[in-house]
Computed example of a mutant assay.
Amino acid sequence: MASSSTRWLKAAALPVAFLAAAEIWFRGPGKDSESLAAPTAVARAWVEAAGDGTLALATWQTLLGAVGGLALGAVTGLALGFLIGLSRTAITLTTPAVELFRPIPSVALIPLAMLVFGFGYGIEMAIVAFATFWPCLILAQAAASQIEPRLLEVSRVLGLSGAQRLWKIVLPAAMPRIFVALRLAAGFALVVAVTVEIAANPQGLGYMLMIAQQTLRPELMLAALVWIGFLGWAVNAGLNALQHRLFRHQRIGAEARP
């Protein structure tokens, strides 16, 4: 316990020192700025936004768009990835299309998505789904293609159907990689959702950043920025803890091997 506390104190030393130095600098004479703010001003802006419900509403809007797009992109990407990965012919046929469309930046689709979906959750979920589709597709395809061939041969000998083979053999063996894909996609989802809100969708934390910038409120802008960073950290930490909990037995088994 003591070593853990010491480690946390050492990790917090540099950020605390930086915040203290920033506060001292901003309290000096002639240090008014239209683009930056003192840490205490940022904290007050965050408390005000949290108190009047602005921050909660913006957070809900961003998370709804990010989670909705992530669900759509992850489900379709994982399903297609498994179907492609189980067949060498499918891999050969789809590789050119994947390599052609995968490098397209998701934000480049905003003009097209605006024409199709207009403003609101539709455009945000569509762009997030496109961004999260590819990592899920690629990792699921890699996981399915690297399944031990003898397991698939045994499933054929036992007369398992394609659905039974997928459910009883492919998915259990590929679950660690699936979770890695979901962690990557979750990070992409939050980043892309905020980006879409900044560029084209008047709602959520991205729009809150834009309004704060346009009204010359750097303290609110920085408060929203810090909150977005905290959300990203919390999502990743939660998924990382869940991954360790779900697949701890596999890690222990791997460490026990000579």
Rank of each mutant, 00 (worst) to 15 (best):
E197T: 04
A113D: 02
L83V: 11
V98R: 05
E148Q: 15
L209E: 01
C136H: 03
G85Y: 07
L86W: 05
L151D: 10
G73P: 02
L93I: 03
V75G: 03
T89L: 15
W134R: 00
M175C: 09
A66I: 04
A199C: 06
F188E: 13
G122H: 04
S161F: 10
V194S: 14
A185E: 11
A113E: 11
L205F: 00
P111F: 01
L151F: 06
N201T: 07
R88P: 03
L86Q: 12
V75T: 08
I127R: 02
I84F: 04
T76S: 15
L137A: 02
S87H: 10
R102I: 02
L205R: 01
C136P: 03
G187R: 08
G118K: 03
S106Y: 00
A189L: 05
E99S: 12
L70W: 04
Q141D: 12
L139A: 13
T195S: 07
G187V: 01
A143R: 02
Q141C: 08
E197N: 06
F133M: 04
E148V: 12
F101R: 05
A212R: 08
V194I: 07
I211P: 13
L115N: 13
G159I: 10
P105Q: 04
M175E: 14
S106H: 02
Q146V: 14
A173D: 15
L78R: 13
L83G: 03
I169V: 15
A79S: 08
R183K: 14
I110P: 05
T94I: 05
I198G: 11
T92S: 13
L166S: 11
Y121S: 06
S145Y: 09
Q146H: 12
A74V: 04
T94F: 06
T76H: 09
Q141V: 03
F117V: 00
A163H: 14
